[in-house]
């Protein structure tokens, strides 16, 4: 209505949720030290905040026993540390992160021996989604950015306990139109993160040169949703769509599906373990009862 040529420029306001993997088990074995990794990520966060005054960044740390918010740019006090040498963002984030890691360690000790060896993606994902819904999406577009060091892979000896939960949160992200970008640091591709990005229309990236992590992050993940429609971004090739079964958490390409709740099983069961519906007799030839899943 009124002369507002600047209107064009305001559609790149974004809210970015960054999920960091802080699982010490993985980082110790990495050839990219955690401290280096953090400095790349901090620069990345700074660059997001630099691009637009209204941009918001929330960082959620994902440990192996709990996950928590470690930084929220809207709450940032902007007061540097006491000696004034470390900038506010780094100081806030690093301090919170340290507290987080200490608490994570403590929880690990208190907890029983079953200590999970994988990061709690499902928990942090749902936290991030809640946080996005909490913010006003009328004025900005939200995206999730997962930065993970080795994630449990299907076919990996470690079974993933949170498979259903993760898939559910991915689907709810899809429903709320929040793209999940994933940056995966490791040797093999992570089928899980690939699927998450594919389903939600985000970008999956496995950086080749870890020294240039910042360049990868800023080139790919600092793109606002509006610009994505006309920028050349990494495309997903060869996404592994295989699902895991609910009973043994094994990756399968053929299995049984409950007709009521769509749970997946690798073997025939008498009763669905998720919704409790009773299945009929399995037929002698498996093909009619089994469903092909891509």
């Amino acid at each position: 209505m009124a002369p507002a040529p600047s209107k064009l420029y305001a559609d790149d306001v974004s809210l970015l949720m960054v999920l960091l993997d802080t699982n010490p088990l993985f980082w110790t074995s990495s050839y990219l030290p955690f401290s280096n990794f953090l400095s790349h990520v901090l620069s990345f966060l700074n660059s997001i905040l630099l691009l637009n005054q209204l941009n918001q960044v929330v960082v959620i740390a994902t440990g192996y026993n709990h996950c928590d918010y470690v930084f929220d740019s809207s709450l940032a006090t902007n007061q540097g540390s006491e000696n004034g040498r470390m900038p506010a963002l780094c100081y806030d984030l690093l301090q919170k992160l340290e507290e987080f890691l200490v608490k994570d360690e403590q929880l690990h000790k208190e907890g029983s021996e079953k200590g999970l060896a994988s990061s709690l993606l499902s928990g942090s994902l749902s936290m991030a989604l809640c946080c996005i819904l909490f913010y006003d999406l009328d004025i900005c577009t939200a995206s999730l950015c997962l930065i993970f060091r080795r994630f449990f892979d299907q076919g990996h000896s470690i079974h993933n306990p949170g498979y259903v939960a993760i898939m559910n949160s991915i689907f709810s992200a899809q429903r709320s139109m929040v793209p999940i970008d994933s940056c995966y640091i490791g040797s093999n591709n992570s089928a899980f993160l690939q699927q998450a990005s594919y389903i939600t229309g985000g970008v999956y990236l496995k950086p080749q040169q870890l020294d240039g992590l910042f360049q990868y992050l800023s080139t790919v993940f600092a793109t606002d949703l509006h610009s994505r429609t006309f920028l050349q971004l990494p495309k997903s090739v060869g996404v592994d769509f295989r699902a895991s079964c609910f009973c043994h958490k094994k990756t399968i390409d053929m299995g049984y599906i409950c007709s009521v709740c769509l749970s997946i099983f690798c073997k025939h069961h008498k009763k669905c373990s998720t919704c409790g519906s009773v299945f009929g007799q399995a037929q002698s030839d498996n093909e009619s009862a089994s469903n092909l899943k891509r």
Binding site: Y9, L51, N52, S218, L231
Partner: peptide
């Protein structure tokens, strides 16, 4: 000045920064 640029131009600056 960076903030005032159109989104794509911002992106370019960021991309070429290093």
């Amino acid at each position: 000045i960076l903030r005032s640029l159109p989104p794509l131009a911002k992106k370019y600056v960021l991309q070429m920064l290093c």
